[in-house]
Design a protein around this nucleic acid. Sequence first.
DNA 1: AAAGCGGGGTC
DNA 2: GACCCAGCTTT
Length: 344
Amino acid sequence: MSFSQKILEWYYIHKRDLPWRSTTDPYKIWLSEIMLQQTRVAQGMPYYHKFLENFPTVQDLASAPEEKVLKLWQGLGYYSRARNLHATAKMVVVDYNGNFPNTYKELKALKGVGDYTASAIASICFDIPEPVVDGNVYRVLSRYFGVDLPINSTQGIKYFKDLAREVMDVKNIRDYNQGIMEFGAMQCAPKSPNCESCPLNTSCVALKEIRVSQLPVKINKTKIRQRYFNYLVYLDKDNRTILEQRQGKGIWQNLYQFPLLETENLVGHKELTQILNGNLKDSTNKVAMYNKEPIVHKLSHQHLHTRFWILEMDELNSKAIPWEKVHNYPVPVLLADFIKTFKI
DNA sequence: AAAGCGGGGTC
DNA sequence: GACCCAGCTTT
């Protein structure tokens, strides 16, 4: 039996019943695929339901304010996905009259849709024989065929895409593509896969050569930047505070936060007030350190050593917002956790 | 080709 | 701690 037939047989027995598996609606498939980029099914699932409730159609999503999209996305990470999701919804409504394009090329031209996602939508929605290559597929193919080309090198990416195309089942691309991904997630797991019960264990090169734990090969060395954040939580006598929207290129683009003072190192009360002194308003009554032990918020390539400072004010300008409204704004998890625990 | 981009689960 | 997750975009 061929590789693809074994995958399909395994899939029909072991497939999970996931909500996006019972539809070929491009809107729902696209939504699920964007959400699941670099994200586990369990983490993305509640967001998928939440988005469909709030935005039943692509028109609903397109006509929503970006702030609402970001708020619903809050906690899922990689927020460019939410911004691109919104932009693509508008493009589909305006340029495609509300109907998603049905070719790989047009799909890939949509914002936030790369090679993987275009292939996934094309195959699942339109039965186009285009192989998907995600993290699961890299793992399955590299092990089964014993390929040690780095999966994140230019050569490796092309090699595995070509290999995936050779071994795919063009007659049943929908199930095959989802099957090989599911197989990678459930059976050919990253750590201690269950090779004993694997239907491919008689022909798997990595198993035969005892290289399962060494494949796939990945070259990466993301060095982590240490940053020191001081969030200035202003509070006036009416319990109003200041929130700003993050601008520019870095993390958390377009999300909201308290005014941020970033320093080169951890600073104490004295240094902070010295730095602030030039800008400190006369109406500042008290500056209090909220957390003595800095909170270390860990991102993929940054560790954010964070202190919150409470600045009691006589008055704030007219842009101040009541504390009860703070929870309406999209904020990073770091701030959401603080807001949750902080009692006025 | 390499870096930047979140947050959470698992071992 | 290290690694990974239905990757994409920018530099």
